[in-house]
Amino acid sequence: MKEKIKKIISKIFLGEYIFVLMFCLFLFFSNVFSWQSGLKIQKSFVLFFVEMITFLPFMFILVGLFDVWFSREKIEKHIGGSSGIKGTVLCILLAMLQAGPLYGAFPVAYLLWKKGASIKNIFIYLGAFSTLKIPMITFEIGFLGLKFSLLRTLVTLPVFILIGYIMELYLTDKNFEMKQP
């Protein structure tokens, strides 16, 4: 227990929170000497902080729940080398049910390639992964509104499908193959 407290204290004072602590100190002195610039910065910081701290925990709970109910392994099982429209739709759905940055999608794309997905579907998967992930869209709706999110989704969908087609058109007959580094 003692060790744990020590660890937390050292984490706060030496680790990731050092900048935050310095900022708090800055705010403290701004208040003591009623330094106008500092007080102005404090005003906007408090405004942003209150807004974030009230919403973010709930959104992260949603993301966490999403993660346990739709695990990657579960979805991967349903994806084979299905071709045609069905394959494309499955690739998009698989991508939407995931979370994380784009580089997390490369290994999954490799897996799809190994299972026989077409070039077109591999790149459509990447497009959907980078723009249509459901956990990401919930964040987007929360912060930028349903209208923005809906509009972006509708405009993005045809664009990355087109990119998939162009990639396939260009890479067929060019001995394209994916590798696992």
């Binding site: 680790g15 990731e16 929170y17 900048f19 935050v20 902080f49 974030m52 973010l56 925990p57 992260f60 709970i61 949603l62 993301v63 966490g64 729940l65 999403f66 993660d67 346990v68 109910w69």
Partner: peptide, 18 residues
């Protein structure tokens, strides 16, 4: 899931504050 989400939140909190 809740634990996972809150852990993620706490992990990102310093970055968000910065």
């Amino acid at each position: 899931g809740t634990k996972k989400g809150l852990k993620m939140f706490l992990g990102l909190l310093p970055t968000i504050l910065n």
